[in-house]
Design a protein around this nucleic acid. Structure first.
Lengths: 207, 207, 207, 207
DNA sequence: CATGAATGAGGTTTCATTCAT
DNA sequence: AATGAATGAAACCTCATTCAT
């Protein structure tokens, strides 16, 4: 990459990070281009030299997050054997990613819910692709675990969704409701994993 | 209530139910007052005789749902003893409520996520109150269960949030992603409860 | 038509006539909606209660003029026998129409030229239809005249276009370049017809 | 002219010819400077080293065409005696010029109509001068023809405008409406001249 | 009470022009 | 001289809200 290109890339990312914070704080629709322009310290017109429209800014942000997820899921996939190990690592990664990158988490949360209703921003093809890949990594790992008896056999899609939702909700709660600032990642990971795997029941009670 | 008042109440609810469907389908911002007026078969101006502004329509809808929840949680609270019984009933209620009332669920889902970001529609005082009551019912039940050893002892707030999120995510997945139309409530309730209480691990593996 | 409808129709025509003058004076693109709003003494938003967008205002104007033309061409068609009579009447009508309605003429002139280039406002289906009807009236009349020897036989399309262009140009010149305010319609009609039919040559010179 | 100056002149003409095609295809307003820059293979900023603004590019193009016309009208003026000879040559020249240079014709057509409306691009002083010269050549020739009985005596300005408009309209029709690609210039010239001079009437009918 | 025409603030987007490199 | 990133004025259009009927 030439200097020019690097500079351009840098400015593009400046805009993205200004937009990310705004989207996270106020949602897509409530964020105006004027605000993005002001926050990124560019003129309003300049933004349009980097993105075709407001939508594209949003898509770029979401794609970045999805890509980060994919990359990490892949490496976790390779470095773990059991589904429990895999899930523990995934949860740890998500805690760490989301808390270091709260704005990204919030945008993802919005995105998740957008599926509801007449999807205002249909997933871009790229996002769909990455999303499928993410899913297939989890599914493959889970199905292997079911085969070898680690996990109770059931509809794997349902279980994946359930785990994902649980993790998401938990982070959402810690970040948004409790407004926890400093979390103990190891502890939280351990706690959440244990509940997903063993449930909330008191082990002493189990027959 | 006089006839006049009943009539007024009826018309108000007509507007609310039109708005509910629209909000569920398109979200708050993407729904226009023109659409609400058309769907409810009132003039646009008339709506303003019943609600001060668009926001208030939304709030009224959410309050209705919260009230339904509160009422049902209360009766479930009274009619159950163990936390597992309680949770089973709560899950059954939520499945049934959400699938009979998908629009309400979707609005709630939007609402949940709206918490993210700087107060798009701040919770009304009434909603906050009901919300607290809901929480306290669950909390009380859970803490009793921890005391008598049914449930592993932990931060009860966290656990409540976790359960709520799990249930929500699961319904969300079934309704939105899988687009399941007819669910077997008993089966789903049983499945979800079992996972929450016992986890996903294969019981045979447990030592 | 109810009073309401008549009122609506009246206001619509108020907007159209404000827009007509502006389009005539400055062309379509150089006229802003703010100007139309100001000139018609409505709010900007109000305009959008009557027309979907700026384009539609323009189209409505052009359609009106085309319809006026069609109506008049039809009645002239019925009330004349020879092509010369027909042409004389058509020219007289056009003089009178265009000078009483200079703005309309100017918009039509713009419209004619728009055919050039990547036609920004493609003719609406209705305009195309009317345009064809206008053309077929003229063509039929001309072909009859060729058959019975009144007119030299040639490509009738070409001749129609030629006559139309000549009349148009002449009016254009009188109105725009000479800025004639009061024309003697009978005289002008006679002059133009005579040139179209007999040419510019001095009859004494004809062999 | 030094080499530097010649080089500069060359680049200027490169820009003009790129702009000419674009203006012809899309009109002045719908052509952006970005497009001119891209088509002329210069940077956008460079264009501003050669022209003060977009307007000036347009004016320069029109001036070029007017100058071409003037030059040719002059030589035709010198090489012909009768008004019919003169007109025939002028028509032939215009056919040939316009069909070899369709873009120029289209720009001129736009320009002609622009006169309509309150001066969108006021004629530059130079254009006005050339325009007057063109006019005076035609006028002088015509008035001589009227004097010596070739042409019916009338308002010569009117007649000049009429002829010009007729020729223009005819070319416009052939080029734009019929989209004729290869015209037989001799034939068309003969046809058009004959109609201008003798009219459309069947000579046999003339008394 | 019911209505819907009128409103205008506020949103996104375009593009001629400037200016630092 | 050549460049193109940066700019912001100005365009079109939407829609919550008001208000006269």
């Amino acid at each position: 990459m030439s200097r020019k290109e690097r500079e351009r890339e840098f400015k593009r990312s400046e805009i993205l990070s200004a937009a990310l914070e705004l989207f996270a704080a106020k949602g897509f629709i409530n964020t105006t281009l004027d605000e993005i322009a002001e926050k990124s310290e560019f003129g309003k017109g300049t933004i349009y030299n980097y993105f075709q429209n407001k939508e594209e800014i949003y898509t770029a942000i979401v794609e970045n997050v999805f890509n980060d997820f994919l990359q990490n899921f892949r490496s976790i996939d390779l470095s773990t054997v059991t589904f429990r190990e895999f899930t523990t690592q995934v949860i740890r990664f998500m805690f760490s990613y989301c808390f270091n990158n709260q704005a990204a988490f919030k945008v993802m949360a919005h995105k998740r819910l957008e599926v509801i209703g007449d999807t205002p921003h249909p997933f871009s093809d790229n996002i769909k692709k990455v999303s499928k890949q993410l899913n297939s990594i989890q599914t493959r790992k889970l199905e292997k675990a079911i085969e070898n008896g680690e996990i109770k056999g059931t509809d794997s899609q349902k279980l994946i969704a359930l785990i994902r939702g649980t993790v998401f909700s938990y982070i959402h709660h810690e970040m948004v409701c409790s407004k926890v600032q400093n979390i103990n990642i190891d502890e939280e990971t351990e706690y959440l994993t244990s509940i997903i795997f063993n449930g909330i029941i008191n082990p002493a009670e189990r027959k």
